[in-house]
């Protein structure tokens, strides 16, 4: 009896520590999630799609791209590869979190499952206050973010069913999002070789292979070019 009571106290304490850290994500995920759900709905998908996708994929960029994939001809290999490269950054989040998620017991499976950019950045950077259970803190950060995203996506698709104004051009929300992400990354990096490789390789392959089949050659070119330009790209990093 006292055992379950103290367990509840530990959980409550962790939740109270985690919630304020996730507030910016609440705002961001509600906005992006609503845009995503709305976009899916006006693209002809019922609320069930964004609901399921936000639960099982839980990765904003890929879910936006998936709308375009679902509207294009069925291309399983391209879909899988595209999803892999969009999500490849998680590999490095995982490497960074190996230690922190080490002793989290049964919660570890869910922590890894829900390791989106935002959950990673909070769990990786935040100092956990003294006396707060670490694994529950990580758990609640991940869970709250997941719930915000599911709520936003579902809400957006439900709103999309009622609203009757002209939504032509709403798909630009995805373009804007990637421009902002690209720009933020550009402003952070010292050299822009990698960003430029991404743009140039995509444009060249788009012209050469056409809009329905340029992605796989682009991804191949990017990996090859990154390997070739390893020296100039890493130059200056070592000095620091």
């Amino acid at each position: 009896m006292t055992d379950s009571k103290s367990k509840r106290a530990i959980r409550l304490k962790a939740l109270k520590a985690a919630f304020p850290k996730t507030l910016p994500i609440l705002a961001g995920f509600l906005f992006l999630g609503i845009s995503y759900g709305f976009y899916m709905r006006v693209s002809g998908f019922s609320f069930f799609f964004p609901l399921c996708m936000s639960i099982i994929i839980f990765g904003g960029s890929l879910e936006f791209v998936a709308v375009t994939m679902l509207l294009s001809p069925f291309a399983p290999i391209q879909t899988f590869l595209m999803a892999l490269v969009i999500q490849a950054r998680h590999l490095f989040y995982g490497i960074a979190m190996l230690d922190k998620y080490k002793c989290t017991g049964k919660k570890k499976l869910y922590l890894i499952f829900g390791m989106c950019d935002e959950s990673f950045s909070i769990n990786c950077s935040q100092e956990i206050p003294e006396g707060v259970d670490k694994s529950y803190f990580y758990f609640f950060v991940t869970l709250l973010n997941h719930l915000y995203w599911i709520t936003g996506a579902t809400l957006g698709s439900l709103i999309g069913g009622f609203i009757k104004f002209d939504t032509t051009g709403i798909d630009f929300v995805m373009t804007s999002m990637f421009i902002v992400i690209f720009l933020e990354n550009w402003l952070k990096e010292k050299r822009h070789i990698s960003s430029l490789i991404g743009i140039i390789a995509s444009v060249v392959c788009l012209i050469a292979f056409g809009k329905d089949s340029f992605l796989i050659p682009t991804m191949a070119c990017i990996i090859i070019l990154l390997a070739l330009f390893k020296k100039p790209i890493t130059k200056g990093d070592e000095a620091k």
Binding site: V65, V85, R89, F92, I181, E189, H192, S195, F214
Partner: peptide, 25 residues
Amino acid sequence: KFIKYIGKALPGAIFGMLVVYCLKG
């Protein structure tokens, strides 16, 4: 080492690719 390098260098290129992907039509 190569994995670590790709991890650092890949995001910029992928974000660039995604911008082009959005504008492909």
